[in-house]
Design a protein around this nucleic acid. Structure first.
Lengths: 246, 246
DNA sequence: GGCAAGAGATAACCCAGGTTATGGGGGCCG
DNA sequence: CGGCCCCCATAACCTGGGTTATCTCTTGCC
């Protein structure tokens, strides 16, 4: 462990997958650009923009989405502090999704061209990159199951349980209570529901003591309860190969 | 049957992303195991199995899926000849999905441990690996849009249009007519529909001259027509960075 | 060659969730 | 401090697609 204690976004993120030696840390650090502020509702990029970097989200929340011909929109992913944004499409010349801030946020850019350095100079970093994208895919697969085969109650509960779980990984403070900057229409667009039906379902959840709704915020009061409603199983977020297997 | 002129599964697949020099080809070849037969309905692996290799599908069709607690199932992906199967989860110690053959098939195994060689000895191969997983993710994202925000007609038409498109990439014969070994219940499980409703929708499609239904097979008669119904746009399968950008 | 199992067609019925509409409350900006 | 916009709640109504059931047609198998 290095002692630039507060550490860079990306070093911290990578270290949650595997231990990095000093050389790898320096390599990552040297490629990362300093944090910049992005106010709420600012787009980070839009579909069709040139795709030349990815980011780490050091503070705040964001989501990626796609606008459809008929005016609706599909939210594809929610990003929480510590997440890497845009790695998914880094082999595309143009962005295939759009990303917007859900709250005031702070991001560090990481130009794509720098990846050559990583691939050619560190086996560990390269493997961690693959682990990150694998986990990302696993999340997408679970999202497919959620959209394809679960009821509205289960969809919502599962989605919230997953986000809680991901938050606990990088942010220590969580116990059984949590506040999320998610509006009902963002959740609706993420889960293929209407905003009205999200509101209806939240009414039930409120009556069951599972959550509270505040101003464009959501308070989870009983995460275990939500997991139970969803039949949540975290296996798809865990059981990555450990470093020793690389 | 290994006639090296015809080339190995995996070399062919990689070359569709970027040109490989002799050394890279030899490296890939040396790591691939010879083809083996898998009869229809045979599982390739099941959720929870140790995850120690991926495969290339040289002949036949397969699909990955997840069985749910309530007895239903979500099909996550359909694999067509030339596809790589299992790369997605290669960072997991255990399989997070199951895979089964949809027809008699032939696969080449590729043990995971060999990937170290690739990562450490060829920048091009490493980059191609990332391109493959990126495209894989793009397909999943589009599937999310499909499940979240489209009608049954659109879901089916889009899914079939995508498969046609992917088939044309590796298999030359396709024009505007195509035969697929997909049952209605596989499609239903892939798209979050009931088999009954797939049957209903196919009746419409048949009347519109878009397709025919045979014995556990599907004949697409008018691929352009299906693309029109779906509002299909292939951008998410293209526009990968070319080799010169690596 | 007969039988069980899987695949599909079709009909009748029903419900989860979409749609439309209305009203209220909080935050932000001039 | 007033006006506007966004977020949310709730009600009334409607429909796309789920469910169940029955019948047929293949195909594979002893």
């Amino acid at each position: 462990m290095s002692d630039n204690s507060d550490g860079s976004c990306i070093v911290k993120h990578f270290e949650s997958y595997a231990a990095l030696d000093e050389k790898d840390q320096q390599l990552l650090l040297s490629l990362e650009e300093g944090p910049r502020e992005w106010p709420k509702n600012t787009p980070l990029w839009q579909q069709g923009d040139p795709s030349d970097s990815f980011y780490t989200l050091s503070k705040g929340w964001a989501c990626s989405f796609r606008d459809l011909e008929d005016g609706t929109r599909q939210v594809l992913d929610i990003y929480v502090p510590g997440d890497i944004v845009g790695l998914r499409e880094f082999s595309f010349r143009k962005r295939i999704t759009s990303v917007v801030m859900l709250s005031d946020a702070e991001l560090c850019a990481f130009p794509r061209t720098h990846l050559d350095h990583i691939f050619s100079s560190s086996l560990v970093l390269c493997s961690v990159m693959f682990m990150i994208t694998s986990r990302d895919q696993a999340i997408l697969l679970e999202r497919l199951v959620n959209l394809g085969r679960r009821s509205a109650r289960q969809k919502l509960a599962h989605f919230l349980a997953e986000i809680s779980y991901r938050l606990q990984r990088t942010n220590t403070f969580v116990e059984n209570h949590l506040s999320l900057p998610l509006t009902q229409s963002v959740l609706a667009d993420a889960l293929g529901l209407s905003a009205v039906h999200v509101s209806r379902t939240f009414k039930e959840f409120r009556e069951e003591g599972l959550l509270k709704t505040a101003n464009a915020h959501l308070e989870l009061m009983d995460i275990k309860g939500l997991e139970a409603v969803a039949g949540f199983d975290e296996f798809y977020l865990e059981s990555l190969v450990s470093e020793s297997h690389l």
